[in-house]
Computed example of a mutant assay.
Amino acid sequence: MFSFEGFVRIDAICRGIFRVAALSVLWLATTVLGLGVLGFGPASYATAKSMDRWLRHGETPSVARTFVADVRERLRESMLAGGVVLAAGAVIVTNVFLAPTWILQAVNVLALVVLGVATAYVFPVMVATDIATTRRRFAAALLIGFGSLHWTIIGAATVGAAWWLLWTYATPLLLLFGAGLPAFVVGLVTRIVFRPLEESPEVPGLTRRSVHHPMIAPATEQVS
């Protein structure tokens, strides 16, 4: 028989699965409503904010209500970051297919990998740090992604395997969890990466930020 603690653990797992699915659906809806180009950045920022609030700070407020507030929170900055990602991705993918030599194609495939790493971490960087410019946020995202390359590889492999399993055996669930799964994995990685920074107040380049959202713990030390 299950103990009370076992039922509590199962309930927590079910709530976590529901949260990932809800964030995935909200990300997709926001991106579509923003016609892709305008919606991608705010949706990704809001998803990263929700994951950071949950996985790093242990806060689990209403998903929909806080997601809408997070979309509006840094709308201009998140739209700019999303626009950079989409524009760079369009150029790189075009070059992959139209490059006249295989060497140029290989270079662009490598650039696509670098862009993928930057995209995975740039929105968590926006959430967790006081870095002021888009260029520096992307630089910090690359520093985190390649500075913790083993976690990046493990996370990418986990997401790839999960997507493949869903595509092969439960395709409708890919639509339900497709965006939430990578956000969840990146949230786990950034929780690990940011932990030593939070515990090292004397590390150069770190600043203590004041979190403006009422649901989040008051302060953490961050990469700048």
Rank of each mutant, 00 (worst) to 15 (best):
L75M: 11
V32S: 01
A43K: 10
V68K: 12
S44M: 12
R72I: 03
L110G: 07
W102Y: 07
A29F: 09
V84C: 10
V68S: 09
V96E: 11
A21S: 10
T66R: 08
D70T: 03
L35F: 15
D70R: 06
V91K: 01
A106C: 08
A29E: 05
L98F: 15
Y45G: 07
L80Y: 06
A90K: 00
G116M: 04
I103P: 01
E59W: 03
L35Y: 03
T94I: 04
G83V: 05
K49N: 07
V96W: 04
R76W: 11
G89K: 03
L110Y: 06
A46V: 03
G82K: 08
R56K: 08
D52R: 10
Y45A: 12
S62A: 13
V93P: 00
R74K: 14
E59Y: 03
R65F: 01
V37Y: 13
A81R: 09
L55F: 06
A64I: 15
L33V: 06
N95I: 04
T101E: 11
A21M: 14
L86R: 05
V85H: 04
H57N: 11
R56F: 04
D52F: 08
I17N: 03
V20K: 03
V25Q: 05
A99V: 04
V113G: 10
T47M: 15
V84A: 03
